[in-house]
Design a protein around this nucleic acid. Structure first.
Lengths: 130, 130
DNA sequence: GATAACTGTGGAGTGAACTACATGGTCAAT
DNA sequence: ATTGACCATGTAGTTCACTCCACAGTTATC
């Protein structure tokens, strides 16, 4: 598919798509069409990649970080041990994030209950991580 | 407490604290100290406010949005029902985020196992949200 | 073959959220 | 009274993630 269709499918603007390509987040193929400035051809897997970008962003990763992770994966140059090592690090990060998120959720839940209870007892607090 | 102590307590830099004050996110009192440029006095509730800012950011709210919400709360214009409603919406947002995070974690864990297993069987995939 | 609807490149601009000075006033301790 | 650790203001710079635009080539449609 061409860029406009891809943009429509992913909900991104054409400009943003080109921006992502420049950053190396997307790797469309080049068509024979377009002469000196060949058109970019996007495949279904690129749509999946866009989805991954969205998720990464939702998790608070920067585009640079996302690009770096994808580059490593894409090259597959890492030996098995290295790949696993990398994914463990990623997982650890995700886990830390999950813990933080859970803490936040518990806090908000407690606060709602506390308010429904007429604000009796001590107001729930969110202790900062040390 | 003065700005340095406050910054330490909240994990923010002094510059960031001043930035937040400029944006109206924090409302320190003014001391008698400091002459023409009076020192800012932060109270424990300001530390709580800083925590709220952190939460809001984790939820993907902009500082502007956070400021707007706080302004509403500060003015006490929201009735109890409204406050609870707001927190429920916040909680729902957090929950969606947690689900996404769990999905991603499961994916990474599966991938690690798959690799440790010699990449036998189908490569785990991250089904896209519909 | 004119024209509308695409495509590309290059570069500048925007808004958000900091971050880094330079400059100068204030305070506590010696 | 000087020194060092604070404080404030103001302005400028940075990074990130887009976003806009002018200009030009290409393709599809009538």
């Amino acid at each position: 598919m061409l860029i406009s269709e891809f943009a429509l499918k992913t909900g991104l603007s054409r400009e943003t798509v080109r921006f992502y390509v420049r950053l190396g987040l997307l790797h469309p193929q080049t068509t024979l069409k377009g002469g000196r400035n060949p058109y970019q051809l996007f495949r279904p897997e690129d749509v999946a990649t866009a989805e991954l970008i969205r998720i990464g962003q939702a998790l608070g990763l920067s585009l640079k970080e996302i690009a770096a992770l994808m580059e490593k994966r894409r090259k597959g140059k890492l030996p098995l041990k290295g790949r696993i090592e990398m994914m463990r690090a990623q997982l650890a990060r995700l886990n830390r994030k999950a813990v933080e998120l859970d803490r936040l959720r518990a806090y908000v839940r407690a606060k709602i209950e506390w308010q429904e209870d007429g604000e009796k007892g001590p107001e729930p607090t969110l202790e900062l991580a040390t």
